[in-house]
Design a protein around this nucleic acid. Structure first.
Lengths: 371, 371
DNA sequence: CTGTTAGCGCGTTCAT
DNA sequence: ATGAACGCGCTAACAG
């Protein structure tokens, strides 16, 4: 393991001043190519690693990226974090995680955001916030702190922002059910006041109407994105007289769909034979429940990736990342798929067909189809 | 939101030197109680937040705790991280996450540990490593970097280390099955070369023998902790002639148990009616599969919590010049559930009875038992 | 008990 | 194109 070297050491070895070493470190233009090469060479050899701490102090900006998550236990958070951490791995930044539920200080989300703002430890923040908590994050944005939101309720703001197209996603789900011959398609709504709840409902309505099917409010029931919150609305829909009962249900998310499966079974109904089912999210467990869930896949890892890229594009225009870890020569990919001026990104979803909808899957997934 | 203040500002406001402010900041004993109170008061008022960056540079030790995880996508990692983040929330430390699979640099675990060691960004590292990768972490430990391992294969080392009692856990599972009247109890082993695989198998054997049941090797089959890797051994066990076929199976972990459920169903067998099933881990999805899985619960959050506490105790110790100043006042209170000298902690497991074992659950879990 | 003096490792002026 | 010098905010010796 390499000993700890400072730019002073490198400077001596290279026979230049510390300032020059600092210049190549920060990729400044005005350095003689020859000496730059020599310095880089030496840094390689001795395994020089600049002090994030010191450069942070001196430069005023740390090479740390903050990510605020609602909880480590939410299934989809893990997928987003995978994308986040993978993307950060391609940069000289490190990953700092703030979790809301788990904070010692009161659960007030404003508090933790205050903390982040006042410490200014991370150079920027990627905030995954459900519901209408965007306002807290917006405060940071207003104060000039680089922030990217991953949320459904942030449309009203001008903050850099990233999300999926919930309307299209819902339409994909309903379209598929219609294509399978269903006409009475029920919907269990997500949590009230969430924008994505509304959007998915809108997509549901749009697709029905596009097929000439009138939206029947008796087939729409209020859920809350949780398993338990899905039980009652599922009961409600499945309790309808057979001729009114939906033959298919589009649940606002996967957890809600799980509740439908269980309620259906408890009613002596089978999924998908008696009731076709499509969820939304494609969290990891949807591959494990039986029947495996057909669902609208949110590209969580992509969301995380684009979120980080967008955030990075906000940070530096001048000092492009410096010098990467010695072994990562090829890993420098252009982080600029994100347009410099597009501060809002909408990713698209994809329908993943498994067993719960009753369609014959085109591509059998390994786990799904092993028997 | 509070403006940014430095200790210099506080010093002026309090009419003392920066050194004194620094002293109260670091809870040094020799400060006049009155001035200490006054300074704290002022810090409160102006909302002073010390710069982690600067104190890290000056003191040589950052208020950052590193956690190395194999992946954000492993179910149990999320639970451990919940405990970790919750515990860190009670301290002035921040959480720095390193993920292995997702690193841009080659997947070599040694590389990322080198990186951590050479940057020395975090004050210490909590490493969740599967298998025998402990050696990489051990290098850090040898070089004096504070490290705590969460792993099954680290018994051979003297590193601070934390884990669950796999033998007892396995015995709990098997004991329960025996109590339900089962005599032919099969076992699907975990991944080869993992210590916890061996330990769980040993527990399985011990409990059988304690009940006067001979271990039958035809009832033991090799898995690998993965769902897919559980399919074949499950097939093997369930293909046995009825009179030899196990009436119950103890799977080395939950994912393997899921495979047993699916294979059983594909054989026209029902869980738990035809085959009782107990898993190990109690990952979140075990509440969602059907039948809900009876399993040996690993206290993942506790593991994370104790891991952090142990790590912090290592840090504090090294920072204490206690030999020189045998002060009478020990105002250092928290985090000392962990004995100063116990560098290895073994937590115990708990059997969570749900549907898959065929026993009538004593306590119906909400989700589990809603119908 | 408290103030003074040095740095920690690096970025960023100024000069040259 | 490069060096010298200063300072980021704080901790850690030293004195008193």
């Amino acid at each position: 393991m390499a000993r700890k070297h400072t730019i002073g050491d490198i400077a001596k070895l290279a026979g230049v001043s510390k300032a020059t070493v600092s210049r190549v470190l920060n990729n400044k233009p005005d350095v003689d190519p020859a000496t730059r090469a020599r310095i880089l060479q030496i840094m390689q050899e001795v395994g020089f690693v600049p002090s994030i701490t010191a450069s942070g102090l001196a430069g005023g900006r740390n090479r740390l990226l903050g990510v605020l998550i609602p909880s480590f236990n939410w299934f989809y958070v893990a997928d987003i974090m995978r994308g986040v951490s993978e993307t950060i791995g391609h940069t000289p930044y490190e990953l700092l995680v703030y979790s809301i539920n788990d904070m010692a200080r009161d659960n007030d989300k404003g508090d933790i955001l205050d903390h982040i703002f006042s410490t200014k430890l991370p150079a920027g923040l990627l905030a995954i916030l459900p519901g209408r908590s965007a306002q807290y994050v917006e405060r940071l944005h207003i104060h000039g702190f680089p922030v990217v939101m991953i949320d459904d309720a942030a449309h009203h703001t001008a903050m850099p922002w990233i999300n999926v197209d919930n309307v299209q996603g819902a339409r994909q789900a309903v379209k598929h059910l219609i294509a399978l011959g269903h006409r009475r398609i029920g919907h269990i709504l997500g949590k009230k006041d969430y924008l994505c709840t509304l959007e998915r409902y809108q997509g549901y309505c749009q697709e029905l109407e596009a097929s000439g099917i009138a939206v029947d409010q008796t087939l729409v029931s209020q859920g809350d994105f949780e398993y338990l919150g899905g039980v009652e609305p599922a009961r409600q829909l499945l309790s309808l007289p057979v001729e009114q009962r939906p033959t298919a249900i589009f649940a606002a998310n996967d957890l809600t769909a799980y509740a439908v499966i269980d309620v259906a079974n408890s009613f002596g109904l089978r999924v998908p034979e008696d009731i076709a089912l499509v969820g939304f999210d494609d969290i990891a467990s949807s591959l494990l429940v039986r029947p495996a869930l057909t669902t609208v896949k949110q590209p969580f890892a992509e969301i995380g990736k684009h979120g980080v890229e967008l955030l990075l594009s906000l940070l530096d225009d001048s000092a492009q990342p410096s010098f990467i870890f010695p072994s990562a020569e090829t890993s420098r990919q252009p982080l600029q798929q994100v347009e410099a001026h597009s501060v809002q990104i909408v990713l698209s979803t994809r329908l993943v067909v498994r067993s719960s909808c009753g369609a014959k899957p085109l591509h059998h997934h390994m786990k799904d189809s092993f028997p």
